[in-house]
Design a protein around this nucleic acid. Sequence first.
DNA 1: AAAATAATGTGTTAATATTACACATTAAAT
DNA 2: ATTTAATGTGTAATATTAACACATTATTTT
Lengths: 246, 246
Amino acid sequence: MTADDIKAMLHASKTMQAIQSEVENTNRIALSVDCVIFGFEENKLKVLLIRSDLKKYKEKWSLLGDLIKPNEDLDSAAYRVLHQRTGLDDIFLEQVHTFGTVKRHPAGRVVTVAYYSLINVEHHKLKILDNELHWQDVKTVTDLAFDHQEIFDTCYKRLQKRIQEHPLGFNLLPKKFSLRELQNLYESILDLKMDRRNFRKKFFSMNLLTDLNEMEKDVPHRPGKLYQFNFKKYEKNKKTWIGIDF
Amino acid sequence: MTADDIKAMLHASKTMQAIQSEVENTNRIALSVDCVIFGFEENKLKVLLIRSDLKKYKEKWSLLGDLIKPNEDLDSAAYRVLHQRTGLDDIFLEQVHTFGTVKRHPAGRVVTVAYYSLINVEHHKLKILDNELHWQDVKTVTDLAFDHQEIFDTCYKRLQKRIQEHPLGFNLLPKKFSLRELQNLYESILDLKMDRRNFRKKFFSMNLLTDLNEMEKDVPHRPGKLYQFNFKKYEKNKKTWIGIDF
DNA sequence: AAAATAATGTGTTAATATTACACATTAAAT
DNA sequence: ATTTAATGTGTAATATTAACACATTATTTT
């Protein structure tokens, strides 16, 4: 039995007081949230970035984040960051991973919980006046500040996986959209081309779309039909959504 | 523009000193890891539980966890807990989710990062002498201490999903195993019955198994062939493992 | 006004993957 | 020697996925 084992055994019989003391006096660590905010604009998947807070990293872009307050729920902190930056509530948000190596942040030990979210860019265009903040095509995102590149990569991969398992894409589109827009979205996120006929067949067979009997307007070509996402049917069929698998 | 928005703008231009001060003086939170340690024994999927540390919860079982030290990487803390409890190194370990509501732990604000791990019970049987620690059939796990039931449920679901996407099961089996053992494992984890012929066909077609040309011994019936996992071929085919999908 | 352009909209076939299903064989136990 | 309880094996039906081309429509250009 090693020293560690003995310590572990002792730990097992720790009292409430001992734990409280540890929680209160030692072992506390700064915790932050970082949000990878995705948007879809000009047929490209984009991410909202901010110039790094720290002078040392002034030339680099970073994710939107903030420290979590001691009396604040983790998810609330993520929603707060989102709301502060986009003005939007009721946003799709998913926790992805927690990054916690000792030296990940230059300002000291900060463990960060990464989230990604999907927003409809149309809804908050006004907010982006600040030149410290911008939407960047995900294809061009490299060399973010700190470990934010790794966080971004992890979240982007998660999005790519999730969108093949669940109909998340609608969070990125306006209420009314054409099938072409929907397909462009999937192609952008997954970075591949799909067959139009198979794409349409798949989505129609899933009964997720409501035909609005309206047509696109102001497009420089034959207009397509407009659809909206049918939330009710999705709830019903949640178990049977098994991936796009084009 | 709301007060929050203004605060956000100000935050964007925070200096290194301001951040360091926040990191060092305020906003620090106790962080822990909790591990859902799965094992496979007597044809059942089991989880390693410990009697709750706190008197108040003395009648309840809880997951294995500990506070993270300020100079310790997150993953290292999880490995440390595992090593302390099982004596094993080189264990499969995956981070799942971070639980961080303000009131989740009675001893104060503690945010916890949940991991699950898969171990071969044969390798550490000796350790379980302590009656504060036991292996419990996952089917009977209810009403754990604190929010550990939720953490357990989340990790168990993750395992069920992962095992359909990656060949993780081998971490739970002895080096040499029969196809029946492998199938029992999958059936236990996924809580369903599968067709033997289809199961075998699937695994053989994936080229993951090496036939050892040995037979089971000391079984009260016709012995089956023994196999081992072929790691090399798995690495090669990583991209093409697309789920069991029985 | 006619022609060119650039997109939408639609069905079928082949290939692949999944599911369903039954009987002979082997070693141990009785 | 018989019974028992498991292993080991193949095929046909079904469902899913992938590949593929042409007519139609509205806009733009000439």
